[in-house]
Amino acid sequence: MSGVTWVMRRSKLSRLVNQPGGTTVGAALEAAAFETREFRAEAMTIVTAALDELDAVLASPPADEAVQAWLETVYFLATRISDTAGPFGFEDMCAAAFSLCELSDRQKRSGTLELPPLKVHAASLRLLFAEDQPPAARKAVLDGLAQVVERTRKPAA
């Protein structure tokens, strides 16, 4: 017979957070902005390098036996782009990177490499990162990616 232990306990964090003193949410967010003010330039450098690396990887599709590791690299670069650009307002780019994660993970699971949709994602990431586009154009890019992903879900007729 399996046992279940259920413990009601208040975390120390919950006691600490209500102690006298402290700061307001507004002041804390301002302070966080100040403390992280130097990070944006570094983030842009990291994202640019990741985009370059992604292009280079996609330009050299692997032999069959190396597909899994290759797709893992694509997945890793997509997460790096998303994680680094996300905190700095690149929400559309994060959505595109997330889509690339989903696509590369799916291809990895199926063991089937389809290069074109991956390249479409890489090109879209560049558009969303570098071009000063109106929201409607950005939305069109994301809608296009959604269609690409949807097509890859459907079995070939």
Binding site: L16, Q19, G22, V25, A33, G89
Partner: peptide, 22 residues
């Protein structure tokens, strides 16, 4: 900047908390 993003709907800018000892 990261700290300038709009707060989530639940964040009240004037709410007080203390994480100094956490």
């Amino acid at each position: 900047e990261p700290g300038e993003r709009k707060a989530g709907p639940s964040l009240n800018p004037s709410a007080v908390f203390n994480l100094s000892k956490a």
